[in-house]
Simulated scan of single mutants.
Amino acid sequence: MVLEVKSVDVYKTLMESAKRIGQAAEAESVQADLNSTISENIINLIREEGINKLILPKRFGGPQIDFTTFADMVKEVGYYNLSAAWITYFFSLHNAWVAYLPEHRQKEIVQSGGLLADIFAPIGKLEKVDGGFIISARYNFVSGIKYAGWVGVGALHQSEGSDKKTMHGFVINTKELEIIENWNSLGLRGSGSHTIIVDNVFVPDDMVIDLGAMAANRKPDLKDYDEDYLYYNAPFHPAFFVGFPAMAIGAAERVLDEFKKSTKGRVRMNGEQEVASPRSQRVLATLTLKLQSAKSLMKTYIEMLENDEGVHPSEFKAIRAEIIQNCVDISVKTILTLGAFALVKGNPVEMITRDLIAIGTHVTSLYEDAVEAYGKHLFDYPSPVLG
């Protein structure tokens, strides 16, 4: 199903908002790198621009955008700063799983104004009690958690009537957990992806989401829901992951712009103007074609989401990984071609290269895993991936 953006003005406004957020984050990027988090200034800007409400059902005032608009918004922020793109993406995206909660819980979370984090690694230890669950676990890599009011965490649970355990999400107010500020990474340092400790926290039954059923059924088990809502009309997990390749493309675009700018001003020790060198000309041509390939795959990915023709999840995963790998290759080749000045801390190419590598290490982006899963599917072997 294809949802059309209601107005050209919606798209234009979102791109302007994304640019403001991205430019503000870029201006603070070195400090965010040192602090291992983007600043509250950027978080406030995300709120002011309404990006945190972007992926809400229409009953809560969401603008009902399409996947292209969402991806382009994330890409625009990513052109300027990938940590900000990561957080901007997540704090809008996570409304998608809230839309599967009962309506009164949706209202509670939306009206609280709390930003939404999640970490659905199914490692929580559960105890079923009257009216809900007691959950305990230590979860790593919880992006933006210092600024979040709510977090969804993962655990395996066997629902009534099911013959096996499936992944479930348990929604917790962040006042009920402990944050360990230990994020110290190569890239995406500004994402503030700290550890949380969930220690015997009670989660009511109506704050639990069966993520397996969500992926299988798409439509929520609610009496009254917005049938046109974007995430009810697409394969959920591939749609959920759409921002990762989008932000990578934005960063790769920036890298090539930096390459052109730096090369035009570069003079070799023998006096040769580098812009006239076939070396850099070939590199720019090759990398531009690689970027065009990534953009074409991104367009294909979104078309697959919208047309909903039963595409196997492994194909989504492989395309996403291929896009991100292309973008990593562009950035690495650029830094190796530009030379030592591009390695200086704070240089846009240096920061973007580290951040793109970090995106490539995300569990949904691992290249070898993705192509293996897709290859199995192509040979009609079982390939059980979420997307």
Rank of each mutant, 00 (worst) to 15 (best):
H104F: 11
E49H: 10
V275H: 09
F341D: 14
I38K: 04
E26N: 11
V30M: 04
G187E: 01
D205F: 13
L56K: 06
L284R: 12
F341N: 11
E16G: 09
A99E: 09
K58M: 11
L336T: 12
S296N: 11
A321V: 07
G61P: 04
G192R: 05
N173L: 05
V2Y: 15
A234I: 14
G149P: 04
K376I: 04
V77H: 10
I359N: 02
S83T: 08
V129F: 00
L82G: 02
V208I: 10
L101C: 01
G190R: 07
F141D: 14
R189C: 10
V275S: 13
G360K: 03
N347Q: 06
V10K: 10
L14S: 07
A99T: 11
D355C: 00
G61K: 13
H362R: 00
I209L: 15
A85G: 11
A18V: 10
K164I: 06
V203M: 08
I249N: 09
Q111Y: 05
G265I: 09
S159P: 06
G187V: 03
E76P: 03
T166Y: 02
A294R: 05
R268M: 14
Y231A: 08
V267R: 01
M298F: 12
S185R: 14
P382W: 11
M207Y: 15
Y89V: 00
N35M: 13
V171Y: 08
R218D: 08
S136E: 05
D163I: 01
Y11Q: 12
G169A: 15
A234M: 12
A137I: 01
L222N: 04
D210K: 10
N326P: 05
G375W: 00
G360Y: 02
V255K: 05
Y80A: 07
A18I: 02
I109A: 01
S39G: 14
E160G: 07
Q292W: 08
I109K: 04
M73V: 15
A246Q: 09
T13F: 02
L230S: 09
D118L: 12
L289E: 15
H312S: 03
L186V: 12
V142D: 05
L284C: 03
N233I: 07
L177T: 07
D228G: 10
G375P: 05
G113A: 04
P235C: 11
K317L: 15
V10R: 00
L297R: 14
Q325E: 12
G62H: 00
I319D: 09
R320L: 14
A24W: 01
A155Y: 05
G192W: 00
A216Q: 14
L116W: 08
I46D: 01
S314I: 08
N140K: 12
L222G: 02
A99M: 10
K125T: 10
T195K: 06
E103S: 10
P245D: 06
L305W: 10
P122V: 12
G265H: 01
S314W: 04
D355P: 11
I51H: 06
H94R: 15
K299Q: 14
Y11H: 10
P204F: 04
Q106Y: 13
R282I: 06
Q292M: 13
G161Y: 07
D224Y: 12
G161D: 09
E48C: 07
